[in-house]
Design a protein around this nucleic acid. Structure first.
Lengths: 190, 190
DNA sequence: CAGATCATGTAAATTGTTACATGATTCT
DNA sequence: AGAATCATGTAACAATTTACATGATCTG
């Protein structure tokens, strides 16, 4: 359902797009929220077309189809936004690693945290760059779709960095408490 | 893969558990990170047993099996933690609603934000309660699995609330700019 | 003894990933 | 001409959800 809504939302904004365009759009604008490969997008478009949520506006060479959202499709997005209570679970590998962190020795856990921070910094840079690219769009009459989500994503990435830093400190403190010979040296043995 | 790791992690901590126990454990401790129904857990346990990641420690009435993690299974969790680079995408309905928010009229968007905040407060209470229940465990010799992830979850929920509040303010400001007759009244028409 | 909870599974459908497959157009 | 990119699809597999199905045990 959510992929369908995401695609409808993108079509709502852009007016019309081909499957390829949408795949690119997903990659450029919502991959951090809801990613999908073209192999999932093309069949989904066929289904949405059958359901009347989108229509074929034009056809180009070698089966290229330009889709546009229908009234019904637009209503569907709106209704979903207004009525659907999103579920809170995040299903994130990141959080799962955070969860299992205490199974590792302190020095190993610190290594994992450092990798997380490094990956996250790259990710944050990507989001900030995306924000820079987004701004010109707002000057046009287009709906600034994605603006608030991007803000949320950036805040989230900054939070992850803070959390990783604080957690590293806490792990060091705990390790020092167990082997109080100064620092986490007890952990460095293995 | 991740469900497998999650289950192995829970078994790593608790020593041994039945499928039912694990389903309860998932519900009580990692449902906010990686949820799974019993219909997914039971077959996964069978597969892990075939692979030698877990063994059957005891059998009770009506097919009840108590599983324990094997050396191999423990190594698998550790290796995953040490080597696996988690992917950053969140695939969250929440963020998708944030993304599509600009498609709504300002007053509708404010309604959605308010619902988000209300749901999130309930969720935050749930996490804080979970943290309270977790604390006694730490007094025992058990690994404080989930401790850091819970901290992360709570920080995340607080961030969502802040974001929703700030976004509501921004939406009001933007609406006022379009119809500058004092406040977001232009949005209240529909 | 009725209702809650314990306890375990299977089946069908949906969703998502990876790999396979093909060919056109554009740029250098 | 060769490489990059445009462009669209299918197939096989894996993960997840929802629904179906059954029966034991415990509590009031």
């Amino acid at each position: 359902m959510s992929l369908r809504i995401a695609l409808l939302g993108l079509l709502y904004r852009s007016g019309s797009a081909s499957g390829y365009d949408l795949a690119r759009s997903v990659e450029r604008s919502i991959t951090h929220i809801w990613s999908a490969r073209h192999s999932q997008i093309y069949p989904e478009l066929v289904k949405m077309h059958q359901d009347g949520a989108i229509r074929i506006e034009a056809e180009g060479p070698r089966g290229r189809k330009i889709y546009a959202i229908t009234e019904q499709g637009a209503a569907e997005v709106r209704d979903w936004l207004l009525d659907h209570r999103p579920n809170m679970s995040m299903r994130s590998e990141w959080a799962l690693q955070a969860f299992l962190l205490p199974l590792l020795e302190p020095d190993e856990a610190l290594g994992v945290l450092e990798r997380m921070r490094s990956m996250n910094r790259t990710y944050l840079d990507f989001l900030v760059e995306m924000e820079r690219n987004l701004r010109p769009t707002f000057l046009a009459r287009e709906k600034p779709i994605g603006k608030y989500a991007l803000d949320l994503g950036i805040r989230h990435a900054r939070l992850l960095d803070e959390w990783a830093a604080d957690t590293a400190v806490e792990i060091c403190r705990d390790a020092a408490r167990v082997s109080p010979d100064g620092g986490a040296s007890g952990a460095r043995e293995r």
